[in-house]
Design a protein around this nucleic acid. Structure first.
Lengths: 222, 222
DNA sequence: TTCTCTCTGTCAAACGAATAACACATTCGG
DNA sequence: CCGAATGTGTTATTCGTTTGACAGAGAGAA
């Protein structure tokens, strides 16, 4: 449930729709690489296991991408979606906490390709400071604030221990960070002008537990 | 939307509810550790930023945990939720793919505490085979199937490259695996008797991008 | 041209989830 | 022992999302 305004007009885009946009883009890029030029809503939707009407409904929030009777043009849709999602302009980020998870994220090359270059990694542990991950040096936590300010970083990945999260987030917000990708299992308190995405891995695991343990008595539809 | 049967009765529990159960449990364990004995739906709900009515509604799916007029007893609720979620009995898992993400997950001690011990890690890369993570050796991929069979592993974490995912999943299903925690950015095809949880990290990042880039023209509610 | 076919944009209906409302069981103070 | 206060279990209402339906725009064939 997010409200955005575009060209003066204000409208609401459901969170559910926003979550699907990257999936659409992903499939479309694959099609583009395969040399496919046109794709209908039905083709694209079934390949993603959703209904075609939902896909058209989603696209409808952002105005038409085609004309009635004609399928979507892949080469036209890809940049349009990239602009909507916002990855047409790179959004540099910093990673706070160079533990295993922080390192794993820093190592994931695709993020850079998708417009999220990692400018810096920070940690309090002096044994980690100085190490490099894909050429990005791990810096001491004490340099975090000046670095973020100087490089005008807007997005931060939080992979620090639970107790430290809120304090780190506060400091970052003071330096201009407006988006957090939070991997600690705790909510952080932020003003309404800051976006937080909580990535609670343990929750996913428990949902899996809930479902697998009930597999025996699961009632299935055809 | 999951259908479960319990004591002969069949009923449906929304996915949204299932996702909240771990959050409830988490907060309750914190309360328990703090020595709190009783907690009302309102107290628990507001600490999780949800409505009390929703919490009661969620609990209602699993029968009453208290009596009208009396708050919930923490020491009673914790084991009840643990049983519902299914973490009262450990669910051992294997990790396929010992890249950075696989190693990060293997290193996360909390999973073990929460009832998800990592029995084995597998990788095709001979340079990784033989290394140990928290005492768990990385084994060659070739041993995966016999290991899974012998240890009756039911849950597998997939952190292998996209191209390999489906094949690995197929092999694992043939060996009795019924639940996947899939970190590759691709859907895997499974029969209805198998549960898949897709953890698409890039999607989270893009949602963040969508929202942060629209911060300027975001309309906020009080 | 005209007819048919395809497939979008758009609106309406159906469905599901979140919130509010309330009846009533329990405790506690007087 | 009674009345007020508390707070659950449960039902009703509201809200948002998904699905279905359809008009009509364009393309291509005859």
């Amino acid at each position: 449930m997010t409200i955005i305004s575009k060209q003066g007009k204000k409208f609401r885009v459901p969170d559910a729709t926003i979550h699907r946009l990257p999936l659409y883009l992903d499939k479309l890029i694959l099609l583009q690489q395969a040399g496919v030029k046109e794709v209908s809503s039905r083709q694209l939707a079934t390949s993603l296991d959703i209904k075609a009407s939902q896909l058209r409904h989603d696209f409808h929030y952002f105005g038409g991408f085609s004309k009635p009777g004609r399928p979507y043009l892949v080469d036209l849709l890809v940049p349009a979606l990239e602009e909507i999602i916002g990855i047409d302009v790179p959004l540099p980020m910093v990673i706070i906490g160079a533990g295993h998870l922080g390192q794993a994220i820093a190592n994931y090359k695709n993020f850079e390709r998708q417009g999220f270059p990692v400018l810096g990694i920070f940690d309090v542990d002096p044994r980690l400071v100085g190490l490099e991950i894909r050429g990005i040096p791990i810096r001491p936590q004490s340099e975090m604030e000046s670095f973020v300010r100087e490089n005008q970083v807007r997005l931060a990945v939080l992979t620090v221990p639970v107790q430290a999260v809120q304090e780190v987030a506060n400091k970052l917000m003071a330096c201009g960070v407006v988006g957090f990708w939070n991997f600690s299992p705790t909510d952080i308190k932020v003003p309404g002008t800051v976006i937080v995405r909580n990535e609670r891995l343990a929750v996913g695991l428990m949902c899996l537990s809930f479902k697998t343990k009930r597999l025996g008595n699961l009632e299935l539809f055809p």
